[in-house]
Amino acid sequence: MFLINCPFCGERDQSEFSSGGEAHIVRPKQPTELSDDEWAEYLFMRKNIKGIQFERWNHVHGCRKWFNVVRDTSNDKILSVYKMGEKPPVNYK
């Protein structure tokens, strides 16, 4: 059970949060211009990597804010948290 450092509330138990999958997938501004394949890329394709992953979490039973998390999926260590709209930390790639 993770301890997650919500950027708005501080460290809380994982049970207060829900996960929202991979981060930094931007909804296309003009979906109508996209081919089926391009739209499918946005809609369905996720990396799901073993290692350092950027993901979205929601403090759903807390402040209800969404934010980003850098997590090493191989050992579940959370390396960094940052707010929506902020640039991802550069030292993880």
């Binding site: 929202g20 979205r56 929601n58 759903v60 209800r64 969404w66 929506m84 709209g85």
Partner: peptide, 13 residues
């Protein structure tokens, strides 16, 4: 509500 909040906070801030 969760879904609407998601779009508001992340896609259309």
């Amino acid at each position: 509500l969760s879904k609407l909040e998601d779009y508001l906070q992340t896609e259309w801030p």
